[in-house]
C-alpha cells in the first residue's frame, strides 16, 4: 500500500486531533502524559468546546503542556493552577477552563488551592495525573508515593513513620459539596484509555452545565522515575498503585 492509498478516507481509522500541535512530545517514551493530553484535546474537539477553552498548565513534567495542546493556555506557578483557573473562570463564566496537574503540584504544594477551588465549587475541570513521584525534578518522593516505594528522597523506601502516608486527595475532594464528579482512571491500555476519555468527557459536559468542580485523576506510570521499562512500569502500576488507588467513578451527580 502506498501513502496515497493509506490516506484515503475509507482507510482512515484514526486522525490526530488538530488541537494537538505537531511538536515532538517532551515526555519519556512509555509515559502516560501524551495519551492523557491527546484524549483531553479529543474530548474538547468532540464537544465543540476547544475554541472557547483556556487550559492551565502546572509546574512539573507537564509544564510544557502548552507546547502540545493547541489551544489558549496559561502556565501557573507550582500548585496554583486551581487559583489561576478560578481567576479566569470567574471573569469568563461561559468559557471552558481546566487545569492539568501532577501529584506534587496538586496534592503537595497546591493542596490549599485544590481543596478551596473544589470547596467553592468553581466551574472548572481538574485533570490530575498521579504517578506517585516528582518526575521532572528527577524522581523525588511525592505526596502520593506508596509506602515502601523508593524514590531519590526515599532511597530506602517511603517510611510512613517519618515521611507520612500517601495522600488520597481524590477521595478527600469527593467529600466536598462543591464537587459534582470525581473519577479515577488510567491510560495504560486501550480499554482504560476509552474509560478515561469517557470520564473526561463527562467532566467537561458537567462543566458546561455549570455543575461545579469536576475532577478526574489518572493513575499513570513514570518508568524513568521508577527506573523500569515502560512494560514493567505498567505492570508494577497495576500490581501496586491500583490496589491503593482503585479505579472507577468515586462521585457522580445525582440523577
Amino acid at each position: 500500500m502506498v501513502f496515497e492509498d493509506i490516506i484515503k478516507t475509507e482507510n482512515l481509522v484514526y486522525k490526530k486531533t488538530s488541537f494537538m500541535t505537531d511538536n515532538t512530545l517532551s515526555y519519556c517514551p512509555g509515559c502516560g502524559h501524551g495519551t492523557a493530553h491527546r484524549i483531553t484535546m479529543e474530548v474538547l474537539e468532540e464537544l465543540g468546546l476547544a475554541e472557547n477553552t483556556i487550559g492551565i498548565a502546572p509546574v512539573g513534567c507537564s509544564v510544557l503542556a502548552y507546547d502540545f495542546m493547541n489551544i489558549d493556555m496559561q502556565q501557573a506557578a507550582h500548585g496554583r493552577a486551581p487559583a489561576v483557573a478560578t481567576g479566569v473562570k470567574r471573569c469568563w463564566p461561559d468559557k471552558t477552563v481546566f487545569t492539568y496537574q501532577g501529584d506534587g503540584d496538586l496534592a503537595a504544594i497546591g493542596t490549599a488551592e485544590t481543596i478551596h477551588a473544589c470547596n467553592r465549587g468553581e466551574n472548572i475541570t481538574i485533570i490530575f495525573i498521579n504517578n506517585g513521584i516528582y518526575g521532572m525534578t528527577g524522581g523525588q518522593m511525592a505526596p502520593t508515593t506508596l509506602p515502601g516505594m523508593r524514590s531519590s528522597t526515599s532511597p530506602y523506601g517511603r517510611d510512613v513513620e517519618t515521611m507520612g502516608n500517601p495522600l488520597r486527595i481524590t477521595e478527600l475532594v469527593a467529600q466536598l459539596p462543591g464537587v459534582s464528579f470525581v473519577s479515577r482512571q488510567a491510560v495504560h491500555t486501550p480499554r482504560n484509555v476509552r474509560k478515561a476519555k469517557k470520564a473526561i468527557k463527562t467532566a467537561f459536559e458537567l462543566q458546561t452545565q455549570k455543575k461545579g468542580t469536576t475532577f478526574v485523576e489518572i493513575v499513570s506510570n513514570c518508568n524513568s522515575g521508577w527506573k523500569m521499562t515502560p512494560v514493567q512500569s505498567n505492570q508494577w502500576m497495576e500490581e501496586n498503585m491500583f490496589p491503593f488507588y482503585p479505579l472507577g467513578d468515586i462521585k457522580v451527580p445525582e440523577k
Binding site: I56, Q74, A77, A83, V84, A85, G87, V88
Partner: peptide
Amino acid sequence: NMVYGAAA
C-alpha cells in the same frame, strides 16, 4: 494567582 488568571 487569581489575579494572574484574570489578567492573563
